[in-house]
């Protein structure tokens, strides 16, 4: 059995009275590409936001490489409002800000691309290198540590070359075509030197050809950087092509889980996606 990278345990996220994610259990193992799919509003992005520290889940625990990075239980006014399961199972509160979670090795991309759109392509990647730079405010501000700055620049450039983006290095990021912006966002995420890459609908807005390329690309970077990938997606072709395992979410609840072939023939999944006709 491969090493466990991400372990989501009984995670419930409730906004007021709305249960967005209901008692989710999910695992990502080393080197796997795991997909989370589901109809619109199923709570997929909410799961991402819980993992990356943007939201604090109402109840449950998330482990990353054996370390608990998020844990919470219904507190305050949620005590009364809580409509999920496993009340009282957890009694510790652990939470980190998104930057610390990135530091621990989880990098993400966004559903609606969030590049630093007025900065150059090169700067976009260089900014992601800031976090792991061995420097302090004064040594950096006074340019005392030139070797470190040079290293950051070289690594960022190497990353751009690998992604085939080096010819755009001085272009403004917002001016790139859509597909390249997606690619740059992934390159930027890779620059943080992650162990787990979270991709939020990486194929959104792409044509079939681009989607195919993206699928190959995701497989490539997984092997090259020794990553595990956890992605949220709508495009069935992409998901079925590259995923090792698939989780299906509907109305915040896990309705199926398995290898692509199993999911394709799962009745519940077909029902959630296509709906059941009333005649039957």
């Amino acid at each position: 059995m491969a090493e466990n990278v991400l372990h989501i345990e009984n995670v419930t996220m409730q906004f007021g009275g709305v249960v967005a994610v209901n008692n989710l259990n999910l695992d990502v193992n080393q080197g796997e590409i795991v997909a989370l799919i589901g109809p619109n509003g199923a709570g997929k992005t909410t799961v991402f936001n819980c993992v990356t520290g943007v939201y604090e889940p109402t109840n449950g625990k998330i482990d990353f490489l054996g370390e608990t990075i998020v844990e919470n239980f219904p507190r305050g006014k949620m005590k009364k409002l809580y409509a999920g399961e496993n009340m009282g199972m957890y009694n510790e509160a652990v939470s980190h800000t998104p930057d610390l979670i990135t530091y621990k090795g989880i990098a993400r991309t966004f559903q609606n691309i969030r590049l630093f759109s007025k900065l150059s392509v090169f700067e976009n990647v260089l900014i992601a290198k800031h976090m792991r730079a061995r420097q302090n405010f004064f040594s950096a501000a006074l340019h005392l540590n030139r070797a470190e700055e040079k290293r950051m620049r070289e690594e960022a450039l190497a990353l751009l070359e690998e992604q085939g983006l080096d010819k755009y290095r001085d272009d403004v990021a917002g001016s790139l075509p859509y597909g390249l912006q997606r690619r740059l966002e992934i390159a930027r995420a890779l620059a943080t030197e992650p162990k787990l890459l979270l991709l939020d609908e990486p194929a959104a807005g792409m044509n079939p050809q681009e989607t195919l390329e993206l699928a190959a690309f995701i497989g490539e970077i997984r092997d090259k950087y020794n990553l595990s990938v956890f992605l949220v997606e709508h495009h069935m072709d992409l998901v079925m092509n590259i995923s090792d395992r698939i989780y299906v979410l509907d109305f915040g609840k896990l309705i199926a889980h398995g290898v692509p072939a199993e999911i394709q023939s799962n009745e519940k999944v077909i029902e959630a996606y296509l709906g059941v006709s009333e005649d039957e």
Binding site: T52, V54, T97, P98, D99, L100, T102, Y103, A107, R108, F110, R114, L115, F116, S117, K118, L119, E123, L126, I127, A128, K129, H130, M131, R132, A133, Q135, F137, A140, A141, L142, H143, E149, M152, R188, A191, T192
Partner: peptide, 28 residues
């Protein structure tokens, strides 16, 4: 000098997009 350093770039990242900056490991 500060603006042209790594910290200066972090400042600009925050100006451009706080959420993305935070996701890139910049402590807001």
């Amino acid at each position: 000098l500060l603006i042209n350093s790594s910290y200066g770039r972090a400042f600009k990242a925050i100006r451009e997009d706080e959420v993305a900056a935070e996701a890139m490991g910049i402590n807001l």
